[in-house]
Design a protein around this nucleic acid. Structure first.
Lengths: 192, 192
DNA sequence: GGCCGGTGATTGAACGTTCATTCATTATCT
DNA sequence: AGATAATGAATGAACGTTCAATCACCGGCC
């Protein structure tokens, strides 16, 4: 990784953290720059505009998620085991790097997520679609549109993360219930 | 409903629509006022500040959702039927009033959703929790924390709506698959 | 009825702040 | 020395909020 890529990523990570803490509102370029230890103007050496920076951040986060999840997948296992690995790896990742989940959620429900944007190539989306397609073709998942399966599973995972985040303090008693969730999701999507 | 309440709601609905179209970024008071046919200053007759307006909008949307869903619930039916009613009514409502779903999603993942805010009384949250609690106590749902059940179901419903919104144009072939989703969710949460 | 004065809602221009972006200058590297 | 990167003060647009001025309405009085 050359020096430029390094500094670019420094800026992206700085924006990511600010967005997690304060939302899109709370990440002025001045702050992003300060946190990345560069001058405000320097951001424009790496990005055309703030909007372009946000879009690039979106690509960056999705590629990091893809890297992490795909390298921990073992296609030689049977699909049920792969599903639970997928679930656990995804929820762990979103908890370790809470800013990933927070950013993706804010981005998805924001006007950045235009129709044009959705025409961009999306390796993470393609990977998950292929993953669930394999589950269907091996006869272990209900024969539905893999896009739908994927969205249902991701929606549940995100709900779980949100639950853990919001009720962090209060949930000693319910902690065991949370382990049952991937099983519930599996019961919903498996071929039966 | 007196005249003041009327105009207050006019302003809230105007903000709601702008937020759906352009996000929190894209709803300056000047625009909210213009769309509601009042002067910018008048907004401050009804709300202390823009932030307070957004918080009140949140209360307003949740109370509208509660009104709609609770009045269409029939507690004398068995719980499985009530669940499918609940699902259908919620997804219909979110489709008819897309701005409700869009606003709630943006609000939830924004910094408006502080911890203090979550201590506010929340009739809609309490209603859904009680709803799922009845399902558990009648032995038809898995005996889990009803908050968790509720969140899983809502997460799936929202994923479905998002799917329909994004792929509106392309999905003639997958439309039938979408009908199976409430059944999948039910299979995941029912006592077995 | 017609007029008056007063009360409270409504207005929108003006204010001060914040922000994204620019660019002349300076520093760093090759 | 020349090229490239980095700086941060300056700029102008946009925003939330204020407030002096205007308007709409109503009861009381002639």
């Amino acid at each position: 990784m050359d020096q430029n890529t390094n500094k670019k990523i420094l800026i992206l990570e700085s924006a990511l953290e600010l967005i997690r803490e304060n939302g899109f509102h709370g990440c002025p370029i001045s702050q992003v720059a300060k946190q990345a230890s560069v001058a405000a103007g320097s951001v424009y050496t790496y990005f055309e505009s703030k909007d372009e920076m946000i879009l690039e951040l979106h690509r960056y986060v999705k590629s990091e998620v893809l890297k992490e999840i795909s390298e921990k997948d073992h296609p030689e296992k049977n699909f049920e085991a792969r599903f639970f690995d997928f679930w656990n790896n995804l929820t762990s990742l979103y908890q370790e790097r809470a800013a990933f989940q927070s950013f993706l959620e804010q981005f998805t429900s924001s006007p950045y997520n235009t129709e044009t944007m959705q025409l961009e190539s999306d390796p993470w989306g393609e990977w998950t679609e292929a993953f669930f397609k394999e589950g269907i073709e091996s006869g272990q998942l209900r024969p539905l549109n893999p896009k739908i399966l994927s969205m249902m599973v991701m929606g549940s995972a995100i709900s779980l993360i949100r639950f853990k985040t919001y009720f962090k303090t209060k949930t000693a008693s319910t902690a065991q219930d949370l382990h049952l969730i991937p099983k519930m999701v599996w019961d919903g999507i498996k071929f039966q």
